[in-house]
C-alpha cells in the first residue's frame, strides 16, 4: 500500500522523489541555466547559458542565433536590439522559434533604456551597440542582467563579460559554378572569467546541412513547441 501511494504521488505533476531532487549537482542548477544546442554546450562552462551572465559573441551572426535557438524552443523569450539586418529566415532554420524573438532594429539614442527595459522581461537579450555606449553604462546593463536573471548577449566588444566567444570558419559545398553553400565548419574559441578562464575551443558544423545546426534539436523538442 505505501509503495503504490508513493508511486501515485510521484506521478503527479510537480511532485518528485527526494532521491531525484538530490541526484546530481547539475540537476540542481536546472532552471538557472538556459539550454543551448548540444554542440555548443561543450563550449560553455555551465553546460548552457547561466542566467545573469554576459556572453559576448564575435565574428558570426549564425553563432548568435544558434545560442538563442534551444532556449526559445524551451519557452524562453529572446530579443535582439540594434541589428536591423538580422536574417530571420536563417534564425528559423537554426531552430529559433521566431514568434518568441522580438526585434528592436533601431533603438537609436535610447539603446540603454531599451536594453534595460528588455532585460526586465526577457530571458535573453542580444545587443549590437553602434559604439556610443559608455563603458559604465555597459557595466550597468551587465549588472542589471545579473540582477534580473537574464542573459545578456552583446555582439562585438563589451567590457567585463563573463565569457567571450570568437568564431571563424569556412564554407563547403560551393564549387566552380555548381553546388550551393551547404555547411560551414567553424572553430569557436571561448575565453572568460571564473570557470571559463582556462579557455576552450570546439569545432562545429554551423549551420549544418539543411540549415540546422549540428547537433540537431530532437524531434520531440520541436514537436512540443510547434503549434
Amino acid at each position: 500500500m505505501p509503495r503504490s501511494a508513493t508511486a501515485s504521488l510521484a506521478a503527479l505533476n510537480g511532485v518528485s522523489r527526494l532521491s531525484e531532487l538530490t541526484r546530481t549537482p547539475a540537476d540542481q542548477t536546472v532552471g538557472r541555466v538556459l539550454p543551448v544546442l548540444d554542440g555548443l554546450a561543450d563550449l560553455l562552462p555551465w553546460g548552457g547559458l547561466r542566467r545573469g551572465s554576459t556572453v559576448v559573441v564575435r565574428g558570426s551572426t549564425t553563432l548568435l542565433l544558434a545560442l538563442l535557438a534551444a532556449a526559445t524552443v524551451n519557452g524562453s523569450w529572446a530579443a535582439v536590439v540594434g541589428v536591423p539586418d538580422l536574417g530571420l529566415l536563417a534564425a528559423a532554420e537554426l531552430g529559433v522559434v521566431v514568434h518568441r524573438l522580438a526585434l528592436v532594429p533601431q533603438p537609436g539614442e535610447q539603446l540603454l533604456a531599451v536594453t534595460g527595459a528588455l532585460l526586465d522581461g526577457f530571458d535573453l537579450v542580444a545587443v549590437r551597440q553602434a559604439g556610443e555606449l559608455r563603458e559604465a553604462d555597459a557595466r550597468r546593463l551587465s549588472a542589471r542582467a545579473r540582477n534580473r536573471g537574464a542573459v545578456l548577449v552583446p555582439f562585438g566588444q563589451w567590457p567585463g563579460a563573463d565569457l567571450e566567444l570568437d568564431c571563424t570558419g569556412r564554407w563547403s559545398g560551393l564549387g566552380e559554378g555548381h553546388g550551393y553553400l551547404r555547411q560551414r565548419e567553424v572553430v569557436v574559441r571561448s575565453r572568460g572569467r571564473g570557470a571559463a578562464a582556462r579557455g576552450n575551443q570546439v569545432r562545429l558544423v554551423l549551420p549544418g546541412q539543411d540549415g540546422i545546426a549540428l547537433p540537431v534539436p530532437t524531434q520531440a523538442e520541436l514537436r512540443r513547441v510547434l503549434p
Binding site: 519557452g75 524562453s76 523569450w77 530579443a79 530571420l88 529566415l89 534564425a91 528559423a92 521566431v98 514568434h99 518568441r100 524573438l101 522580438a102 526585434l103 528592436v104 532594429p105 533601431q106 533603438p107 537609436g108 535610447q110 533604456a113 531599451v114 527595459a117 528588455l118 526586465d120 522581461g121 526577457f122 530571458d123
Partner: peptide
C-alpha cells in the same frame, strides 16, 4: 505557467514601444 514568460515579455515590449513609438518593436512572420 506558460503564459507568464509571454506576459513578462509583452510588458517589456510595450514599455519599449513607449520609448520608441509603436513602430519600434517587431516580431517576424515567415
Amino acid at each position: 505557467d506558460p503564459g507568464t514568460g509571454a506576459e513578462r515579455a509583452g510588458r517589456a515590449l510595450v514599455r519599449v514601444q513607449g520609448l520608441l513609438g509603436p513602430e519600434g518593436v517587431f516580431t517576424g512572420v515567415l
